[in-house]
Design a protein around this nucleic acid. Structure first.
Lengths: 332, 332
DNA sequence: CTGTTAGCGCTTTCAG
DNA sequence: CTGAAAGCGCTAACAG
């Protein structure tokens, strides 16, 4: 690969001048600029980004840490972040945190050691304090899916409680009175908040919460299956089910159908997230829309704005979920 | 951030010595090593990877270019690649090619300019010649999902024709005689090969190929819906359908069910890829297993072996698909 | 076993 | 408007 030195030689100018035309910083006369450009073309020159980084202390890379790299949810985040960042020639370094404190910390460490200019984090296990602390370590952070007190403007989050509430309320308004739930992990903030929303809706309509009608899952499909079996074993009738995400809803629906329970005739089911496969299900799953793509995009814009000084595009920190009614819910 | 210089000063040794203990290259007496380690600890020192890269001409990063970052298929690739690479402290830079020649080339360019030590490519639009040429440009490449003549040992691929054949044969052996197909894009090698497999199975069993029973899709769910509608419009009866991937199968199934066609009683459907949501479907989708996770892992091992000289783990270049029978197919 | 000394390829004052 | 020169933080001969 040709270096800037060879270009300067061929063009008969100094290093500095070549550098100026590369970055179009400073002023260069049109004539010499042309000479330089021609030389670069001739040599097939491309600047070495590593050397640039060393000199500028900017790597033009942003680290993204998400729980998993696969699955209907995280793929979309990743995709929108990359898309947004790429238009500004920033690249994305990824790693997975697996919702485990040690792995999340390790991932953050890994990314920092890669000299990322900023980090976009979707973490569960790590505490608010830890994140706060990270910020003091002077690497810009934007947090997604969670609102850390004191750094709201660097968080992109959604009102999970409201989502859980809205889902449950939808079912209640449809006439259901026995409403079971398969929650997410209650140690995760979103799992907890969605469940709280469920409780609030029940309260508001004067329905009593029955612990036997609650099962805790882990957001994976298998736990939806387990949860459904557990619920059924109670032999307490229920006509509706709110699941804390779509994967678990898929599992629950599968088990129900296997046992001859018709959705939505015998049981209405609502999920959460509105991932793409909900429309592949039979019946198509009612759910709560989580604007994950927009949120990823906003996270990217946040770093573009804060780190690379690119303003212009509006950014929204807080999102509202909304119910999407499809075929898996009906009146009772 | 502390530099190596400060460490050497605090430890009272030279830069070179510190560098030696960082990389444990060369020999250092246990005593001075301890001093250095202590100094590093005290300063919270961490080597600057950018500077290391500049000096060694190794970035420890590998670029991954895949068609999309989302979806059930690519997430898994990404995940297994990252997982494998991370254990060796290599990081992954990702970008999407969108199956478009210009974007794929641009992505490759982008990744190269990021000084990746190697590229893992899952590309469709770019020609074999282009890939070949790339290799001559001296950046190590491993190609996934496609076998480029002359560089087989750097390709991780699967026998798509055999997959298409096996899927179709399964249906034939179940007693079906009118077998429709929704193919992938025929300009993509895998779409074409899967379709060829379908043709071969038909031939082998003396069934005539009826062009009216073929619809071309683009691997997206919507095209499965379109394809199904188109097939139904022909008003030519068929009792089985082979789809070139699971997403399209999901779309086709949805349309069929909407029109009161029962799967599998009226119509047997088989997909391709065996992505996770196939088991969420109702009925669960029969499909052809594509060992995408293993293939991603192998691609990563390939670069570990070729670029970073890490041997040991066996690598497999060619994979065989196999049919997974579930509830969407039955005898006729 | 340890230190000296050149770079790696580029940016950025500071002069001119 | 252009050039000289000093780094950025680290590695890798080469001596000793």
């Amino acid at each position: 690969m040709a270096t800037i030195y060879e270009v300067s030689e061929l063009a008969g100018v100094s290093l500095a001048t070549v550098s100026r035309v590369i970055n179009d910083s400073g002023v260069v006369s049109p004539k010499t600029r042309d000479k330089v450009i021609e030389a670069m073309r001739e040599l097939g020159y491309r600047p070495n980004t590593i050397a640039q980084s060393l000199a500028t202390k900017r790597s033009n890379s942003v680290g993204v840490l998400i729980p998993e790299l696969y699955g209907p949810f995280f793929g979309v985040i990743l995709s929108s972040i990359e898309d947004e960042l790429r238009t500004e020639s920033k690249h994305v370094i990824i790693t997975a945190g697996h919702s485990d404190e040690a792995i999340e910390k390790d991932g953050i460490e890994f990314l920092s050691s890669r000299n990322c200019d900023a980090l976009i984090l979707h973490v569960y296990a790590v505490s608010d304090e830890y994140i706060e602390q990270l910020r003091e370590s002077n690497i810009p952070i934007v947090v997604i899916g969670r609102s850390v007190p004191g750094m709201e403007s660097n968080c992109i989050s959604i009102d999970n409680e409201q989502g859980g509430y809205a889902a449950t309320k939808t079912l209640i308004e449809l006439g259901h009175r026995q409403i079971a739930t398969i929650t997410g992990p209650l140690w995760k903030n979103d799992g907890k908040r969605r469940f709280e929303g469920y409780r609030r809706a029940l309260d508001e309509f004067g329905l009593e919460f029955n612990p036997a009608l609650q099962a805790e899952g882990d957001y994976e499909e298998a736990s939806g299956r387990r949860g459904m079996r557990q619920l059924l074993e109670q032999e307490i009738p229920f006509t509706a089910l709110v699941c804390a995400n779509d994967e678990m809803a898929a599992g629950a629906v599968a088990v129900a159908q296997q046992r001859g329970i018709s959705i939505p005739d015998d049981l209405s089911v609502i999920g959460f997230d509105n991932v793409y496969f909900t429309t592949y299900m039979n019946p198509a799953l009612s759910t709560v829309h989580y604007p994950i793509e927009d949120m990823g995009r906003m996270a990217a814009r946040c770093v573009l704005r804060d780190v690379y000084g690119m303003n212009g595009k509006a950014i929204q920190n807080r999102f509202e979920p909304r119910v999407v009614r499809r075929a898996s819910t009906k009146g009772h």
